[in-house]
């Protein structure tokens, strides 16, 4: 697999647009800053939903209302994460594509999105005046832990390969 990817990486590294992204000093730090801001939006939403599920925060709103508050912002932030992630991968393809932590991170992202999707559907069907069930509370904490794991893997890409 690495040999196949190396062919793509060599091709990418020979493209003028890739060289521009890679060697323009401000591009990668700026894109990483936007990436971190989007991470903040996603993790904060997951944190508040998880804490609200166990009645620790935001009691003026039901869990369903908090979910409604965060839904569009989280979806927008996920698109931003995808776009900025693609730019970072384009800038340094060998650092990402040949890195086992990056690959683990991508698998975790897919698994987390599937769990978050099912959690989202349950919260959309939830009645505002009823407390969240144990499965919903557990899923909310699982989603939070998954995003924390993904962010942790993201930082470790810089240090390990």
């Amino acid at each position: 697999m690495d040999e196949f990817l190396q062919g793509w990486i060599d091709w990418l590294n020979a493209q003028p647009f890739q060289q521009t992204i890679r060697y323009t000093e401000w591009v990668v730090p700026t894109v990483q800053t936007i990436h971190i801001v989007a991470v903040a939006v996603v993790i904060t939403a997951a944190l508040v939903i998880a804490l609200r599920g166990v009645e620790l925060t935001g009691r003026e709103w039901s869990l369903a209302r908090w979910h409604q508050r965060f839904r569009s912002g989280t979806i927008a932030a996920l698109w931003v994460l995808l776009a900025t992630g693609l730019v970072m991968t384009l800038a340094e393809p060998e650092r990402e594509l040949l890195n086992w932590i990056f690959r683990a991170k991508m698998v975790m992202v897919i698994v987390t999105l599937i769990i978050a999707h099912f959690l989202s559907r349950r919260l959309e069907q939830a009645k505002p005046d009823r407390p969240a069930g144990g499965d919903v509370r557990a899923a909310a904490f699982l989603v939070l832990l998954c995003w924390i794991g993904i962010a942790t893997a993201g930082r470790w890409i810089a240090y390990a390969g």
């Binding site: 993790i43 904060t44 942790t152 470790w156």
Partner: peptide, 17 residues
């Protein structure tokens, strides 16, 4: 790296909240 991970996670929580 581990301290930086905790720093980044706490900072995104500060900013997000």
């Amino acid at each position: 790296p581990w301290i930086e991970v905790v720093h980044v996670l706490s900072l995104v929580t500060v900013f997000g909240s």
